[in-house]
């Protein structure tokens, strides 16, 4: 069985955010981690590998050359192969152009199952997984909280706001993973050692199969950034430091003034 896990190197949002002059993210200037939902997806794949014979796990990422780091981390956790899709012409892609690119890369591979994270913590869109599945013409099951293999099918616990569905899909299919799916394993020391030397496959534009140039990168992105900025918050109101009884009086007076009480 062959599993492809799509992972993304994302800025650690705690580290602050920097922009290029064109309004896109300056990814090179920020600290990075493996996106948490993707890591849960990788862990799910590795658990299937632990459970069955002949499971082969390929991790694939699209990004700057530096995104190789996240592939090595995945391989140190137990993934078998790493593929980096990187090319200048792919830069500035929105979810449409990103999913087109990744689908073009996956068309070169044999796969039974594709796992992506539900969403990445930088964009928070949750779009790329379902869009890859659409480009490849396979079913998608989003928001997976549990994944089981049964013969040539997968059985997935699909989460909604107030319920879950147990859903069965014939492979090949794509699943988007929630962080709640599992607790990802740590890299092993041996794994780190091996991953350091492991060969990473690097693909560029020419390796993408059945993809038109007009669907790639900033130019191939139907959505355009009109403006981007640090969040402007509404200004602070009054701040007082008072003894407890005076503080209660103060709040009460405001509640009365605004006719809430």
């Amino acid at each position: 069985m062959k599993i492809v896990v799509c992972i993304k190197q994302v800025p650690d949002t705690k580290g602050g955010v920097k922009f290029n002059p064109d309004g896109t993210l300056d990814r090179a200037a920020m600290l990075t981690i493996m996106n948490p939902d993707d890591k849960a997806g990788l862990e799910a794949a590795l658990r299937i590998k632990d459970q069955y014979d002949d499971v082969d796990v390929t991790v694939l990422t699209m990004g700057l050359p530096k995104a190789e780091e996240v592939l090595r981390e995945a391989m140190a956790m137990g993934a078998d192969h790493g593929i980096l899709v990187t090319d200048r012409v792919l830069g500035g892609a929105d979810t449409w152009a990103t999913s087109t690119t990744i689908a073009g890369a996956i068309r070169n591979l044999e796969y039974d199952l594709i796992i992506t994270g539900r969403q990445a913590i930088d964009g928070d869109t949750a779009q790329v997984g379902p869009q890859i599945s659409e480009h490849l013409g396979i079913p998608v099951i989003s928001y997976a909280e549990d994944i089981k293999i049964e013969g040539d099918s997968v059985i997935v616990k699909r989460q909604y706001e107030d319920r879950y569905h147990m859903v069965k899909a014939k492979m090949p299919c794509l699943i988007t993973a929630l962080s709640e799916l599992n607790e990802p394993r740590y890299m092993t020391p041996g794994g780190i050692f091996d991953a350091y030397d492991a060969e990473i496959t690097v693909w560029g534009r020419d390796n993408l199969k059945d993809v038109d140039d007009s669907n790639l990168g900033l130019k191939g992105s139907p959505t355009k950034i009109a403006k981007a900025s640090d969040k402007v918050r509404k200004g602070a109101g009054e701040k007082v430091t008072l003894e407890s009884d005076e503080a209660a009086n103060y709040i009460m007076s405001k509640l009365l003034e605004k006719h809430i009480v």
């Binding site: 800025p11 602050g16 955010v17 355009k224 950034i225 009109a226 981007a228 900025s229 969040k231 402007v232």
Partner: peptide, 9 residues
Amino acid sequence: FGGNTIATI
């Protein structure tokens, strides 16, 4: 970015 930025698209 976890609410750190806003973008108009």
